[in-house]
């Protein structure tokens, strides 16, 4: 049952990703298929005992990041315009072949079965468990993260701001 659900959500994730890449006309539809991928991945995280990460995946990716994409599409008022897709068939063929080749190599070196997963302590992947680690061993990285977010916030505002002083 669990295995079946896993494969179902995996298929949804792959279908959403393909829908985003192959949808040449409508960026909004592409963003919405990306949401499907994100939600399916959140479900997979929960199945892999990563409960906090699963919740954050849905909150941050499906709830925030894709919404920012949709806002920008709306802001730019993009219609289903021809973006010059379909040119450079040689580059595209090489890119697709390279991607498929790398994927085949990766799946080739992947062992058919890993050793049995480790036994988990109680509460593995919950907010208490991950949070304790985040605020002890990785507290420096956590604090640096706040600087990164501040820099990104200031940078985004400055980049997207309309120049008003004429300089």
């Amino acid at each position: 049952m669990n295995e079946l659900l896993f494969q179902l959500f995996g298929a949804i994730a792959v279908a959403g990703a393909l829908g985003m890449v192959l949808n040449l006309r409508n960026v909004v539809a592409g963003a919405l298929s990306l949401v499907a991928t994100m939600v399916a991945l959140g479900a997979i995280y929960v199945m892999l005992e990563a409960y906090l990460v699963g919740v954050l995946q849905i909150l941050v990716y499906a709830g925030a990041i894709v919404v920012v994409f949709l806002f920008v599409v709306m802001l730019l008022n993009l219609r289903d315009q021809a973006l010059g897709e379909g040119r450079q068939w040689f580059t595209k063929t090489v890119a697709v072949l390279a991607g498929v080749g790398v994927l085949v190599l990766f799946l080739g070196v992947l062992p058919a079965a890993f050793s049995a997963p480790a036994d988990l302590e109680a509460g593995f992947g919950g907010y208490r468990h991950v949070g304790a680690l985040l605020f002890t061993d990785y507290v420096l990285a956590f604090e640096v993260t706040s600087l990164l977010l501040l820099a990104a916030m200031v940078g985004a505002v400055i980049l997207a701001k309309r120049r008003t002083d004429g300089s």
Binding site: L48, L56, V68, A118, L149, A156, A160
Partner: peptide, 29 residues
């Protein structure tokens, strides 16, 4: 992280999510 029973991988995932959010904000700007 599930395979080895080590939650450090999930902490890294949180960091990657933060970097992704910052990247999207700056990139879309």
């Amino acid at each position: 992280s599930r395979q080895w029973g080590d939650p450090a991988g999930q902490v890294f995932v949180l960091m990657v999510i933060v970097v992704a959010a910052a990247e999207v904000a700056v990139g879309l700007g």
